[in-house]
Amino acid sequence: MKRFLVFSAQQNIQKSTYEIWEKLIAMNAAAGSSGVWTVDFLLAFRWQDRDLGQRGQCLRHGQCQSNIIMHHWESGVEGLKKIILEGNYDYVLSTTDTQSKEIFPRLAVELDAATLTEVVDMVYDEKNDDFIFSRPLFTGKILATVRRRKKNGTTFVTVRTNSFSSVSFSEKSFVESLEGGGALTDVNVVDPRITLKEVRNASSEKRDRINLMEAKIIVAGGRGLGSRENFKILNDLVDVLGQGASLGASRAAVDAGLADNSMQIGQTGKSVSPSLYIACGISGAIQHFAGMRTSKMVLAINSDPHAPIFSRADYGIVGDLFAVVPLLTEEIKSFSSF
């Protein structure tokens, strides 16, 4: 009998949060001898714009039933600690995001517990009746398998996005299943000693793009783009690739002022794991590779046949990106609208 709490503190429930739930349900189904696990959801919203149920019972899957616990974020570490202790959870899991990364280590200090961040896989070990986790070290150069030393107490886990796949996710139906009960109000800041002065909203263009870390397809531009304006041709490509696509950049492009910091993929930027990574005019420094190593498929476009990116690409096109990318956009458009 295992007890899990899946934590989400984002404005919208992320696909990756749902994927954790699905993964746990699937593991429970496969681990016949372990009994029925409890998988509860803890939803802690910071900027309340949703009218969700206070506490509902929902998400049935076979024998498993998950409780939804709504939480006022302002009660912070103390409030969460109480919920975890009352629920006697073995594992508290979340997708790797700003909120989980901030709150889990603090809770770990309070509960003298372990936190495993950036987990990419999780398997049930029947022999020990516990779990073995995989997580990258040295920016992905090494993969480590880890388990907790003692089985008692709570362990905190953050899962890297796109690590567990889900086919049946629908945010709408998930949210609908939460309905019933009262509303939440006045949920504000992380820590009462800090004031959140303002939130500068991302430009609408940026907002339309899916979060890089969740993106299934990423088009990334390097110094080869030459100017900020030239990123438009990559934008056009992203547009034809649908809702799961997003736009990134190499450090060289960011340093040269061609793209925003937030778009940077690589060692000092974001680590991404899309199904397809299209590298345009990126030479492929080791630091860049560190951020996109776990992409399932890589297509590189570069005019230099000796660019290191080609040694890491599944498909490489040696050619002028300004000629190749627009053609690619056209070709994908006609493929997709077939």
Partner: peptide, 25 residues
């Protein structure tokens, strides 16, 4: 007194060089 054990470490499989297409501008 660490809370977890690293059981095993391994090098992820290196990507093999993929299919190259040459274009002439």
């Amino acid at each position: 007194s660490g809370k977890y054990l690293i059981e095993n470490i391994s090098l992820p499989p290196e990507r093999t060089v993929g299919k190259m297409f040459l274009t002439s501008t």
